[in-house]
Design a binder for these strands. Sequence first.
DNA 1: ACTCTCTATGAAATCGCTTTCAGGCATTGT
DNA 2: ACAATGCCTGAAAGCGATTTCATAGAGAGT
Lengths: 333, 333
Amino acid sequence: MATIKDVSQLAQVSQATVSRVLNGGVPVSPEKQAAVLAAIERLGYRPNAFARSLATNRSGAIGALVSELSSAVYGDIIRGIESVAEEHGMHLVVSSGHASAETERRSYDFLEQRRTDALILQVDASTDEDLSRWVASSDLPIVVVGRYIEAIAERCVYLDNGAGGELATRHLLDRGHRRIAHISGLMRIPDARDRLEGYRRALASHGIPFDESLVANGAFVEDGGERAMRSLLARGTDFSAVFVANDQSAAGALKALRDAGKRVPEDVSLVGFDDTIVAHYLYPSLTTVRQPFDEMGQAAAWLALAAIGVAERREVTRRFEPVLIERDSVATH
Amino acid sequence: MATIKDVSQLAQVSQATVSRVLNGGVPVSPEKQAAVLAAIERLGYRPNAFARSLATNRSGAIGALVSELSSAVYGDIIRGIESVAEEHGMHLVVSSGHASAETERRSYDFLEQRRTDALILQVDASTDEDLSRWVASSDLPIVVVGRYIEAIAERCVYLDNGAGGELATRHLLDRGHRRIAHISGLMRIPDARDRLEGYRRALASHGIPFDESLVANGAFVEDGGERAMRSLLARGTDFSAVFVANDQSAAGALKALRDAGKRVPEDVSLVGFDDTIVAHYLYPSLTTVRQPFDEMGQAAAWLALAAIGVAERREVTRRFEPVLIERDSVATH
DNA sequence: ACTCTCTATGAAATCGCTTTCAGGCATTGT
DNA sequence: ACAATGCCTGAAAGCGATTTCATAGAGAGT
């Protein structure tokens, strides 16, 4: 591998000059410039990124830590981050936390260890306190996406989950449903609690009392949704619609309904949450509350890049509003 | 940020000693060891990864370039790579090619630029020649996954797509189908051609002549599958089953069938390819040919790690066999 | 008791780049 | 024609680790 020294010798200039033509900004005479470029070409020279980073203390990359790499949910967040990063000539290093606090911590350490210039975190397993501590103790800018943490609110990009729960429930109310059940998410995750809260608010606004027996926990996973729906059906409490806390558990709920001989949406209407690819593939396709993952990723990237002075500081939306996507799983009651 | 020098001063030892306790291998007296560890703890010292990499010329990470980060298909490959990498204390840097040859090239350049110790490529847009050239001209080990390229065969981890096409088609033949259509994939991708070839072989083995009018192109995407199925139906040629080149286009095909009032599997049976999450969510759930993405990722990682001497050299499967996953989209004819 | 290993340690070179600093040379102004 | 100004350029000092090499001291062998 050729080094800058080889280039400088071949081009008969100093290493400083080579560095200057490489990085621009400083004027270099056209002749030397040409000589250097020729030498670079001739030697197939590529600057050593480690040396450069060591000297500049910048890596040219931002890191993203996501809870699950292969999830349909978070792919769009990454895509959003990447598009903005690329726009600014920065690269993206992605690492996965495997939905385990331990692995999240390890991956965080890796990224934080001065390998990237900024960090974007989308994690589930670590607690609010963990994250706040990380933000406080790290000297690189950290942005948290998909989660609102009061202590570091200005570094959070998140959805208004309460409004989302309300939106979903209101939609069912508007369609004439009155007995509306809820399959909730993993309650240790704030999103789940907020969505439930939104559901309660919507009911309240229509003067409908909250009924404990219409709520079952789906834990955000397909299996959980299936079990929750079975439990709901077994209770014998009557309902004509269900707001499910995410698309994945809605898939499970749909299966349980089908197994029980209930038709969707004729017998039971279903609203999901997230608008992941799952909602599109289900049959009937799922009416759901969309999270603008792509835009949220972009916002997070803007925040991060602005913090390190790569992107201009500009107004960035941090709290996103949910949007209802109507498909075929809701009928008028 | 504390440096090794700070630590060495606080611990009253040389930098070399600090480095030794950090990296192990070389004996250090227990007292100094303790002093160093205490100093590290006290200062919150973390070695600078750039400096270390510059000195050792190793990054401790392997790079993966995938065509699409957020695809359901490739998530499992990454997961497989990551699990093996982690097992060996290596980290993973992922970059995306966005299914464009230009971006693939750029991402490749980034990763190749001495940032990672080995490279695993899963790319669609770049040609066999591009890849062969990269492998030839790079001084880091490169493994290609999901693709067979003759010139660099020993660095490829791939599925026997021909066998897959045969498997799918044979399954339909075994179930009594004789008029079997095929919705093919993007023909510039070898996988698509091989699957078609397998389809032809299976037909031939049953003495059924290949019928051009039973083949339509679905280009591996949902839309394409839908259009292809419509085209097939419009031709008026009779068929009772279709082998679709991947799950995604099978989803489109299913939609077209449904729109045309055909029931699956009663009127038309369907077999997909890949066994992605899509196959699971479709209704009826899709019988499909499974690619062991996870294991393929693992194999690629083993190959890569062995090449840089991190993992022991052991026998690694490079050509994987497809497996038929039976679900609900095939009926006996 | 004396030489001969060995073992643990530190000093210093090195990795490949950026950046400061000082100076040479050509302009410009008077 | 001379001083002042600016523009380019090169030498050299980092950046923060690893690693080689030499050496001091401890232990072993006779």
